[in-house]
């Protein structure tokens, strides 16, 4: 399966990654090889097969009571922030 440089650029953009032009070539080649291998799955007829998202599920995973529990104090939640003002995370301007 071939994947073009433009497709990789588009997907990288969706994933909020910026790749140099050279890295795009390598990435397209590698992703192409991997996707070609994924084609092996098309040998299996899965028409009537239900998909599985989780191998172990309800009813043995109990649901907790809907009550307020402990949470991180604000100063701790902000303790790793690259930029903060004591109340909020600070980011570059979004709206002019």
């Amino acid at each position: 399966m071939q994947i073009s440089k433009d497709e990789v650029r588009h997907v990288a953009r969706l994933a909020r990654l910026a790749l140099e032009d050279e890295a795009l070539d390598d990435m397209a080649a590698q992703i192409g090889t991997i996707l070609a291998y994924m084609e092996t799955l098309n040998r299996i007829d899965t028409t009537a097969v239900q998909p599985t998202a989780h191998a172990v599920s309800a009813p043995i995973t109990p649901v907790r009571e809907d009550v307020t529990g402990e949470h991180l104090p604000r100063d701790q939640a902000l303790s790793n922030a690259p930029a903060e003002d004591g109340e909020s995370f600070v980011v570059p301007r979004v709206i002019d």
Partner: peptide, 26 residues
Amino acid sequence: IILGTYALSAGYYDAYYGKASQVRTL
């Protein structure tokens, strides 16, 4: 991240993630 984003992106979801999830059942 790029592989996963591609597999989940519009037009490819069924062919990749959907198919893989069915094979997971098998």
